[in-house]
């Protein structure tokens, strides 16, 4: 079986080329399947999963993701539920006039900007994770060639 790491698509252009030969492979007829039709059981040996999971680099990747995603998720969940809780339990206070509208509307509007800001921060952080993931995969495919 060809190692899958060599099947990187061309960077850049992803023009639809549907109807590729691999798509019409006769499934379940005993012939070898194209890589993207394999089930998890059939291609479990793509990599030494435990080996990858144990590397310093992969553990660092997970820790780095956790350091961002956990606090960010807690933040947006709390910020979001503050709105229905305040609107539901303190409607008079939320109706306080501010800037020609009221607190309730401004707080609701701020949710949109909060969501965009968290998304932007996530994309920034994820750029670094992509880099690490690429290095992990690259090293694996290098090992694959050595064999």
């Amino acid at each position: 079986m060809p190692p899958k790491m060599h099947m990187e698509p061309e960077p850049g252009d992803q023009t639809p080329e549907v109807g590729a030969a691999t798509d019409v492979a006769p499934l379940g007829r005993g012939t070898s399947k194209p890589a993207h039709e394999l089930t998890a059981d059939e291609d479990r040996d793509v990599a030494d999963w435990d080996g990858v999971a144990a590397t310093e680099e992969f553990r660092g990747l997970l820790a780095s993701k956790r350091r961002f995603i956990v606090p960010a998720t807690v933040f947006f969940v709390v910020y979001y539920f503050a709105l229905p809780v305040l609107v539901g339990y303190a409607p008079e206070w939320m109706d306080t006039r501010v800037l020609g509208v009221n607190l309730a509307y401004l707080f609701a509007l701020s949710q949109f900007f909060m969501a965009w800001a968290v998304a932007a921060a996530y994309v920034r952080a994820a750029g670094g994770w992509d880099e690490t993931a690429r290095r992990i995969i690259e090293r694996l495919s290098f090992k694959g060639k050595e064999k």
Partner: peptide, 22 residues
């Protein structure tokens, strides 16, 4: 046992379904 594999796949994209662009 397969959880480790899932975590590695989910976080690196190793062995993920590719585009049918060859």
């Amino acid at each position: 046992a397969k959880y480790t594999e899932l975590v590695v796949r989910a976080n690196t994209g190793l062995g993920a379904e590719k585009a049918t662009t060859h």
